[in-house]
């Protein structure tokens, strides 16, 4: 065993890249859940984003256009969930699972012509001056633009929920849709917007997989990343900052165990892979034992004005 072979600078740099797709998807899902909607279809939206982004990037030669298209495509798909759960009052759990089915099926049909094709690459964006700094330069400041964007998004969501009126309304809707409705807020509209935002973020996450992380289109490319994003939101107890911590932890455990293996350590892989979920349960228990309501109170409940 040679643990000295693990370079902590490179380790953190690679955790940042590896966590970006789940971070993007999780921050979007957090906003959705904050509005009181549980969308279990993250996996389906992510993979749809991945395929749409890839197709557009290959056809236009522009990865950035690809990202935009991935976000729009996944948001469009999430609209079907929005219409069903918000306008037609269908059950959110079942609809979310259906969304995953639809997304997985649709994406592989769209993706057929793009198998084996190479995507245009997204250049690394070395931030001037900062990227030349020793240690932190390589670790934090020489990634591609989406890594920074994902972190920026976390800050933006945090500020939006904490400081803006719209953020306050969104939280009110998630805590008690009946009171929010009584106060004259458009519950359904707020939730639809949140669902679209969640879809777009999941789409960006998927796009990051197909355009940067892998970068190629293959069926089943997300391989469960959407489900991990759902877990991260819970782990984070619906706080933006902790979503980032959670994504880096969940992504980091995989990277770390692979690094340990490469360094020659015997690693109990199954135990390590299960540990983030166990930690998440512990976090949930702690926040609920403290008497704080972790989850938005209206999470998963349908709303109808006549209720």
């Amino acid at each position: 065993m040679d643990l000295g072979a693990i370079n902590p600078i490179l380790l953190i740099a690679s955790i940042m890249v590896s966590a970006t797709p789940i971070l993007l998807a999780a921050i979007g899902e957090m906003v959705v859940e904050k509005s009181g909607v549980l969308n279990l279809g993250v996996e389906g939206m992510m993979i749809t984003g991945a395929v749409v982004a890839f197709a557009v990037a290959v056809n236009t030669g522009s990865p950035l256009l690809g990202f935009a298209a991935g976000a729009v495509g996944a948001a469009a798909l999430s609209l079907s969930f929005g219409i069903l759960t918000q306008l037609l009052m269908s059950n959110q759990v079942a609809t979310g699972l259906g969304l995953t089915l639809v997304g997985l099926g649709l994406s592989s049909l769209i993706g057929k012509p793009y198998e084996g094709v190479k995507a245009p690459s997204l250049p690394r964006l070395d931030i001037p001056v900062l990227s030349d700094l020793p240690v932190v330069g390589r670790m934090l400041f020489s990634h591609d633009i989406m890594v920074y964007l994902s972190l920026l998004l976390v800050v933006a969501v945090w500020a939006f929920l904490k400081f803006t009126r719209a953020g306050l309304i969104l939280r009110a809707v998630g805590e008690s849709h009946d009171s929010a409705h009584a106060l004259g807020y458009k519950v359904v509209r707020v939730r639809l917007l949140a669902i679209l935002f969640g879809g777009a973020c999941a789409g960006l996450g998927g796009a990051y997989l197909s355009l940067v992380r892998v970068p190629q289109w293959t069926e089943g490319i997300t391989a469960g990343a959407g489900w991990i994003a759902l877990a991260i939101v819970v782990f984070a107890s619906w706080r933006a900052g902790r979503v980032a911590v959670g994504a880096y932890l969940f992504g980091g455990i995989t990277v770390l165990q692979l690094n340990l293996q490469a360094a020659g350590a015997q690693v109990p892989v199954a135990l390590l892979s299960a540990s983030p979920y166990v930690i998440t349960i512990l976090v949930l228990v702690i926040i609920s034992a403290r008497g704080m309501h972790g989850a938005p109170a209206s999470l998963g409940r349908s709303f109808h004005a006549s209720n």
């Binding site: 037609l88 609809t95 259906g98 997304g103 099926g105 049909l109 057929k112």
Partner: peptide, 21 residues
């Protein structure tokens, strides 16, 4: 393709949930 069956099942589910309104 196998994927079209998956999509088909998803659609069936969506319609069932939708018309239930």
């Amino acid at each position: 393709p196998g994927a079209s069956i998956q999509l088909f099942q998803g659609m069936l589910l969506f319609f069932l949930l939708g018309v239930d309104v």
